[in-house]
Simulated assay, not measured.
Amino acid sequence: MKKLLFACDGDNFSYSALELAANMNKQEKILLKGAFLPSIDYSRMGSFTYANSYTGFIPPDFYEREEETMNRNIRQFEDLCKENNISYNINKYTNFESLQGLLGETRFSDMILIGSEHFFSAMGSDQPNAEMIRLLHDTECPAFLIPDELREPESILFAYDGESACMAALKQFSRLMISYTDLPLTVVFFSFSHGERLPYEDAAKEYIKCHFKDFTVKVEDGGKIKDLDEWIEAYPNPLIITGAYSRSGFSRIFKKSFISTVIANHQFPVFLFHGK
């Protein structure tokens, strides 16, 4: 049995994340821990009030409405878990630093499921916002970012740079998401030097071959790729695996991190783990 963490802040209840959990539960029984948080992290209340033009004040019924919303989502979560025969537990975070409480829970979870389009959107509507960035930096278990419309993946795109983090992500994916390992996997490495080969090529291929039936390796010339959006659209409905929320060869091309671009511009599921 695996323990998955379902994160829900404010009204941002991810039905696609619950659907994924239900599908995983059909293959192997899981324990789904529902983590219900206010729509804002109170430790950043100053940023929230400024951004929403409350001039330092919040509506008088704000806390009551937050409580009602969390309770409504908890009831919905319970109903859907019972309907799908999922074992579940619930934790409602109402403390000052709710996001820190969620991060603490990741230490005791196999994976956290996050709706990628609206996570803490009250704090910042453009994703990835500061709260998502903090979560991806500090989570102690793999994070699966799931768009509102979860289409069945047709392929897997593994962003490989030879660092330990990307292999940690692939190992966790192979362990947690076994049903997806039948999909064709493309290992992509971006080269910035003439003749540069896949780092640790023989060892990497040996490991991947043990877990994926159909895989190919592509060494791309990083200097020739000018538009990440155009490049990624060449892959059919991919599920993306990446090792860390940090700058790498991808960001040297596009001046921002690969994962930020994917989250902001594409409705693809992303499996991420930094391995620390």
Score class of each variant (00 low, 15 high):
Pro128Ser: 03
Ser87Cys: 06
Leu103Asn: 10
Arg75Tyr: 05
Ala143Ile: 12
Phe108Ala: 11
Glu149Cys: 03
Pro147Ile: 01
Tyr63Glu: 15
Phe57Ile: 02
Leu135Phe: 15
Gln100Glu: 14
Asn71Met: 13
Asn52His: 15
Pro38Val: 05
Gln27Ile: 15
Lys29Glu: 11
Glu66Cys: 07
Tyr88Arg: 00
Lys82His: 02
Leu31Tyr: 11
Met45Ala: 13
Asn89Arg: 09
Ile112Asp: 05
Gly115Thr: 06
Gly34Asn: 10
Thr69Ala: 09
Phe77Asp: 06
Met111Phe: 04
Arg44Ile: 00
Ile74Lys: 15
Pro142Ser: 05
Gly115Ser: 11
Asp110Ala: 02
Leu103Tyr: 09
Ile86Pro: 04
Phe48Asp: 02
Asn84His: 14
Ala130Phe: 08
Ser87Asn: 12
Gly124Trp: 09
Ile30Trp: 07
Met123Thr: 06
Tyr63Met: 11
Glu131Gln: 14
Gln127Trp: 08
Glu28Asp: 10
Leu135Trp: 00
Leu80Val: 10
Cys141Gln: 04
Ser121Tyr: 13
Arg134Ile: 05
Tyr93Asn: 01
Glu97Arg: 13
Lys33Met: 11
Lys33Leu: 14
Ala130Leu: 12
Pro59Trp: 04
His118Gly: 00
Phe48Cys: 01
Pro147Met: 06
Ser121Asp: 15
Phe48Lys: 01
Ser87Lys: 07
Phe62Pro: 02
Arg75Met: 14
Leu32Asn: 07
Asn71Lys: 15
Pro147Phe: 07
Met123Trp: 04
Glu154Trp: 00
Asn73Arg: 03
Glu97Cys: 10
Ser125Gln: 13
Leu102Met: 08
Leu145Gly: 10
Leu113Thr: 04
Ser53Glu: 09
Cys141Asp: 04
Ser109Phe: 09
Tyr93Thr: 02
Pro147Val: 07
Glu83Ala: 11
Gln76Arg: 15
Gly115Ile: 11
Met70Gly: 03
Met70Asp: 04
Glu68Arg: 12
Ser155Thr: 12
Pro153Ser: 05
Leu103Arg: 06
Tyr54Trp: 12
His137Met: 12
Arg107Ala: 14
Phe36Asp: 02
Arg151Pro: 00
Gln27Glu: 15
Gly115Arg: 13
Asn71Val: 00
Ser116Gly: 10
Tyr50Gly: 00
Ile86Met: 14
Ile90Ser: 03
Met123Arg: 02
Asn85Val: 12
Glu68Trp: 00
Gly101Ile: 13
Ala143Asn: 05
Leu37Pro: 02
Tyr88Phe: 15
Leu135Ala: 07
Gly46Gln: 07
Arg75Ile: 08
Asp148Leu: 11
Asn52Thr: 13
Ile156Gly: 01
Pro142Gln: 06
Ile133Asp: 13
Lys29Val: 06
Glu117Cys: 12
Ile133Phe: 00
Arg134Met: 13
Phe36Gly: 03
Asn52Leu: 01
Ser53Trp: 00
Ile86Ala: 01
Lys33Arg: 14
Tyr42Ile: 05
Met132Asp: 04
Ile114Trp: 08
Asn52Ala: 00
Glu83Thr: 07
Asn95Trp: 00
Gln27Thr: 14
Asp148Ala: 11
Lys26Glu: 14
Ser43Asn: 07
Asp110Thr: 01
Pro60Cys: 02
Asn84Trp: 06
Ser43Ile: 15
Leu136His: 01
Glu68Phe: 01
Ser116Ile: 10
Ser155Cys: 06
Pro128Lys: 03
Gln76Met: 12
